[in-house]
Design a protein around this nucleic acid. Sequence first.
DNA 1: AAGCCGGGGAA
DNA 2: TTCCCAGGCTT
Length: 343
Amino acid sequence: MSSLPLPPLRAALLAWFDREGRDLPWRRGPEGARDPYRAWVAEILLQQTQVARGLGYYERFLAAFPTVQALAAAPVEDVLKAWEGCGYYARARNLHRAAALVSAQGAFPQSYGAWLALPGVGPYTAAALSSFTLNAPQAVSDGNVRRVMARFRGERTPSPAWVQAQADALLDPARPGAWNEAVMDLGATVCTPKAPRCASCPLAPWCAARASGAPANFPAPKVRAPVQAVQAVALLIGTAGHAYLERREGPLLGGLMGLPAEPLQPGEAPEAALARLCGRLGAVAGPLLGQVQHGMTHRHLTLQVYRGQADLPLQEVRRAALARLDQKALALEEARQAGLFPV
DNA sequence: AAGCCGGGGAA
DNA sequence: TTCCCAGGCTT
């Protein structure tokens, strides 16, 4: 690393960033002294979420909760409603918990370590927020940084510690916040996963992957667990507008509301799971409304939705926070009401 | 260290 | 289809 010409390299990337960097709503304010609430909401929202998709959720969330005090004072159901559809709902629950801590403390964290102590803030987010809001010299390491460093140094299998070490060594201590944003922008717009635009890259003169002639081979694809096929049955009691909903507990969609559902045991017929579900609810199953498919990172879920009858309280679906899965299931009833699929 | 957690965009 | 996304928490 000591052989790298750091000053010209840093100047090249920062000049590119000052010219081509993305104009994003959470980047308003002085470099290294950004509004901590806006930056924080953005960082949590953008965890494993592409910037283009995060933009809409960001505006919606800030409109619902303009300040950390407003967020802290809100019921968690309202926070999840604002997060609805964005996925990884533990992010919203942790953000809400952390807002109460910050609000009670009366000030935002003033160091990397203080940011790191908040629920939902890990090494990446603490580095990002301390550099963006406090100008702290902390290098971020995310998916973009991993890819940029792997290519830059010609490393096919970069370990997290290795990536962090590269990022630490390159970080421009004069402009840590801008440097972090610059590396991430480069990864998102130039050093892209499939077809990197090396001709437009300010780091091309020093890039080992470009010199290899096949930059897209760096880093090697991550080994992923095979997608598991899961089947379940659900009951729609009521209508798509007013239905009986249950609060999901546990890690999967925890905190969200949804149709009562029951997974099929291995080898089990849907009717058996349906009978178990009806038994639990004291409900009578009606006709099959339809079937929805829902893909998640490690599962592919097939949900059979039946109409059900029971003496259970209905609630206004529009006001509840629902996963996409349940929105698809409810859409079966809306399609029936519209006469598209007569039952 | 490895597994798990949503949902969708890009190629 | 496959791969990945401004990661973090739990076990």
